[in-house]
Design a binder for these strands. Sequence first.
DNA 1: AATCCGGGGAA
DNA 2: TTCCCAGGATT
Length: 214
Amino acid sequence: MDESRIEPFRAGLLDWAEDNLRQFPWRDLDASLYEVFVAEFFLTQTPAANVARVYPRFLSEFPSLDAIRCSDVESLVEVIEPLGFYNMRVEALDEIATSYDSLPRDADELTELTRVGDYVANATVCFALDRQVPILDRNVDRVYGRVFGDDWPDTKREQLEFADKVLPPEQARTYNLALLDLGAAVCTPTPKCPECFANRFCDYYETQYAGVDG
DNA sequence: AATCCGGGGAA
DNA sequence: TTCCCAGGATT
């Protein structure tokens, strides 16, 4: 396959990251495994701005799995409710806290927790522990699907292989954060190609982008 | 791999 | 009110 886009995309994204990464408390370099996990767990199907509103209070009331285990369901609901999906979330957190003394530091083991799939598991160990693993969510799928066109595979297994291959050595954390932010700010469902660093080699821009007027 | 799921948000 | 959606769970 044609790999000529990989290196310019890597370099371009890392360069873009220097000025464009969003700052959130869960992105602090000293955020704990638990703190990052809680954030990623909440961030599925929920806008970051929404999570940011609830996050500080959640951590102050439930600073650990122990704290969740020792609290009653009603107090969990009260804090999580504004996020939506609070039934599922409270149930899952409750189950996790009663099943684990502490969180596993391994993505595959994290996957065994209730309602924790590949995305939350990989994002957690990448962002909290700087593990060199790929993340794959709707944003990543959209960005890679556009930039790499037909080279971006269809199945999840192959996509993870591809995403792993594209990871820049030792910079997975910054790179993956940038990937999410590019998908959130530029490579949106209706993309803002003119302002994208990748438009010089992006398959979508070359073949399908028709400009802001359609 | 395909389908289902719960619930939030937009059409 | 219907449709769409993102990620996980299920089969």
